[in-house]
């Protein structure tokens, strides 16, 4: 029983992190129709930025804010330099380019920081453990969940109540009509990259805050998994991305936790089988009606 509850806590933690990444994926996808392979690597950028800033003795809270901003700026620069010139060149071109951007970010980070694992030391407050009934749960667990919930609320507010949010939803709904309204798509794309990368940065920081170790390639696989989560939920839908993230996290954790070791090592295989299964049975995901973009 204790094991079961511990697994649920783990799944919620992992699901929250997946959700942050998957939502960012979904936002960029719904505006641009781009699967940004480099999205996961933005997490890595945020973590390295934070690590450098903390080594410069900048207070933790400020360092986190700066790391998020650096990540956003970098995402916006990649959009400007690499993606914008290709907007009308077809989706393959964008996919290939995003893969190249991903490799570029990883290799620059390898060149600058080396290929070895590093450890992120968050302030002790976060690693404190709280006793709840028979369990001890670290503060970080609550922080992760809180960051995700607050991010989703802020995002919902932006999408519902602000002008740029209205424009984002309009482009996702009907991009031609959005053009007729005089919505400047380029500006909205920049906003989408900004929001998506901020979420990725938060995901990277909370992830590393919990699991400590990080390296230049940490983001790639997480990014792919988050993409799968977004597809499971229904690509382009925010709620879908969050739902898919938790579904994937629960399946993964319980797969690894309850099956014999000889099978549990096939966890990655299992994740992709889920993806294929979802695409066969419900190509638009659990919540998606029709993603509107073909």
């Amino acid at each position: 029983m204790n094991f079961f509850i511990a697994e649920i806590i783990n799944a919620i933690k992992l699901g929250s992190i997946y959700a942050l990444i998957a939502i960012g994926y979904s936002i960029v996808y719904s505006i641009l129709g781009l699967i940004n392979f480099a999205h996961g690597d933005l997490m890595m950028v945020a973590v390295y930025s934070l690590w450098v800033l903390m080594n410069l003795k900048i207070p933790f809270a400020l360092a986190v804010i700066l790391a998020v901003i650096i990540t956003m700026l970098l995402a916006i620069i990649t959009e400007r330099v690499a993606y914008r010139p290709l907007l009308n060149n077809g989706e393959e071109t964008l996919i290939i380019t995003s893969l190249a951007v991903s490799i570029l970010l990883q290799s620059i980070s390898q060149a600058v920081f080396g290929i070895d694992n590093k450890a992120l030391k968050v302030p002790v407050f976060f690693t404190k453990r709280i006793q709840i009934a028979d369990f001890t749960v670290s503060v970080m667990n609550f922080v992760i969940l809180a960051v995700t919930i607050v991010s989703v609320i802020v995002l919902a507010f932006i999408l519902k109540k602000t002008r740029i949010g209205l424009a984002m939803r309009a482009i996702k709904d009907n991009s031609l009509a959005a053009d007729f309204m005089g919505i400047n798509r380029k500006a909205v794309i920049v906003a989408a990259f900004g929001i998506g990368s901020a979420l990725a940065a938060l995901a990277g920081i909370t992830y590393t805050g919990e699991y400590v170790s990080f390296d230049p390639q940490m983001g790639f696989m997480l990014g792919i998994k988050a993409f799968i989560a977004a597809v499971i939920g229904g690509l382009g839908s925010i709620t879908g991305a969050a739902l898919g993230a938790f579904v994937l996290a629960f399946l993964e954790i319980f797969f690894a936790g309850y099956l014999p070791d000889s099978i549990a090592s096939y966890q990655t295989v299992f994740v992709f089988l889920i993806l294929i299964l979802v695409l066969l049975v419900r190509p638009d995901g659990l919540l998606g009606k029709n993603a509107k973009r073909s």
Binding site: R163, R169, A170, D173, M181
Partner: peptide, 19 residues
């Protein structure tokens, strides 16, 4: 017509005044 079909009538009107 090209309405924004997943958005409300009021939101559609507001989008007309986007600028």
């Amino acid at each position: 017509r090209q309405v924004f079909s997943t958005m409300t009538v009021r939101e559609n009107l507001l989008l007309g005044a986007y600028l």
